[in-house]
Design a protein around this nucleic acid. Structure first.
Lengths: 325, 325
DNA sequence: GCTTGACTTGAAACGCGTTTCATCCATTAT
DNA sequence: ATAATGGATGAAACGCGTTTCAAGTCAAGC
């Protein structure tokens, strides 16, 4: 494989001139420019991008840390990131973690090693203090609200979103309210738990432990939830479901086994997935795609200019009332 | 940022010794080994991975070319790739193309530049001859059946899968059969079109142009299909739908507007998405996740050993009969 | 006629880890 | 006692593009 020095020899010019031509810099005579391109042609030359990365000290690569890809939430976020990355000529390096701390640390180490110029963290398990340590060495953008540390973040205020839905339910007269969530840990989940506790306390209702359904990520989980719900002696009259996929699973299974929604069970989903629209599920619309876009733009702006108008950006949510609640 | 030479100076050893220690090679005295690690600690050293890539001539990165991410089909394939990549210590670089030829070529150029050790192509628009030219320079694995060229491929035989479903419909007495597809171009689509033409010809039925519904990728598209179907004077009695998402859209909208399935319209989906199971959609199960896994393994085996047991691998499909057909 | 500035061009250093090769010492085998 | 062997270590080359700096040419400005 030919390198830039072979090119220089072939074209009868210096290495620096070749570099100038290859990168379209001015101050090269037309004659030499032509000779270099002919040499490129003749030797079937391609830049070794690793050498470029090493020399430039930057890669135009952005890392994306996320637990799973095959999930509507995360694939929407990546799609948003990807769209913007494409636009600004960046590549995306994927770090699928499955919420495994080892893998999250591996991604952060890669960042330190300068494998990428920055990292977007869609969701994570390790503590913030870890990110805090790493952010001194390279740019990191988080996709969740953080109060204790000063991070670059773009986030959905899940406390507000949850509280909004809860108030709506309370106003409709519900008191036996439960919720379904993906996992209990993680800042988003904790914000929702806090909203749940706060709102119920305000209206004088004691939350029931068993009305909180854990591990709800996919359609199938909805089926499980309704089965558990059926088996309860005291059932919640309404469920907040943090994923429309799961909400759809609940609604479909409820239909199948003859549970009337919303009469017997009110369902409010989150995301505003096309599936929710199709099934008439009341839902809180969450701007996942936009989240990805904004996260990338924030990182990009930081990388290119070294400063940003503001480090935190909150994205709005909206309650979309349909048939299920 | 400290480099390996600083380390050497700090530890009072040579650069090569530092390298040996860092990479766990033998033939280093315990004493010097300790000194090097102490220097690493003291100088807060991290390898510059770009330099490693350049020196080694390989990156442990595999590229993935695909049109969209936010789609159940592709996100399942990536998930499969990602799982295996993780297992073997490779990273994934994403090339989202939107079926834009420019972007596909860009990805291939990146491969030539040695940005990654190999490329997995999930779907594409450019002609095979292009891939043929590039595969001389670097390993490429395609996820579709190719007969004219000698590629590394892992594929689902879409001709067979489609024919299987068609025969099933024909045996059930259907003659007015249409289908819904994502896009008309592309080898998979052409295989399906060929199966469609062949099977219908064999049973003496003339295919109707308007019974082929194009641009069917997402749930919402199913709604559109059923609307168009309603507006037809001569309607197909059965539809093959190449995505369960779209099939689900059809089924749900049909339910909503009172079209009886399968009495008035038989639906056979593809994928065997959880949604299909939930909705009782008869479907042809396609092993997307496995496709991703096998594609990675093929590439990996090639990269590590320089040869493979066989360059082509076909994955099985299975008709899952449920309520809609 | 001399200075100034724009334009060209190349040598060399730089970014940084890996790897080869030669050297030197201390054991074993003969 | 001597040759062969294993272990330890460093100098230097290598992979390859970018960038800085010095130097040289030529025409416009004073």
């Amino acid at each position: 494989m030919a390198n830039i020095r072979d090119l220089a020899k072939e074209a009868g010019v210096s290495v620096s001139t070749v570099s100038r031509v290859l990168n379209g810099y001015p101050y090269v005579s037309e004659e030499k420019r032509k000779a270099v391109w002919e040499a490129v042609e003749k030797l079937n030359y391609t830049k070794n991008i690793q050498a470029v990365h090493l020399a430039k000290g930057r890669t135009m690569i952005v890392g994306v840390m996320l637990p799973y890809i095959h999930h509507p939430y995360f694939s929407a976020v990546i799609e948003g990131i990807s769209k913007e990355a494409l636009r600004y000529g960046y590549q995306l390096l994927l770090f699928q973690t499955n919420y495994d701390v080892e893998r999250e640390l591996e991604a952060l180490e890669r960042l330190r090693m300068k494998q990428m110029d920055g990292l977007i963290v869609c969701s994570h398990e390790v503590g913030w203090e870890i990110f805090d340590a790493y952010q001194e060495e390279a740019p990191i953008v988080l996709c969740e609200q953080v109060t204790e540390y000063d991070f670059f973040t773009v986030y959905i205020d899940h406390y507000q979103a949850f509280a909004k839905a809860l108030h709506y339910l309370v106003k409709k007269g519900h008191r036996r309210i439960g919720y379904c969530i993906g996992r209990r840990t993680g800042p988003n989940s904790q914000a929702r738990e806090a909203a749940y506790q706060d709102v119920l306390r305000d209206v004088g209702v004691t939350p029931q432990r068993q009305w909180i359904f854990d591990g709800c990520l996919f359609l199938e989980d909805g089926k499980r939830v309704i089965e558990q719900w059926m088996a309860m002696e005291e059932r919640p009259s309404a469920l907040l479901v943090t994923s429309d996929q799961v909400a759809a699973g609940i609604v479909l299974e409820a239909r199948r086994i003859g549970v009337r929604i919303p009469e017997e069970l009110t369902i409010i989903g989150f995301d505003n997935d096309p599936l929710a629209e199709m099934l008439g599920i009341t839902t809180v619309a969450l701007p996942h795609f936009t989240l990805g876009e904004k996260a990338f733009r924030l990182l990009h702006h930081w990388l290119e200019t070294g400063n940003v108008p503001r480090k935190q950006e909150e994205l709005p949510t909206r309650l979309v009332v349909r048939a299920t609640g």
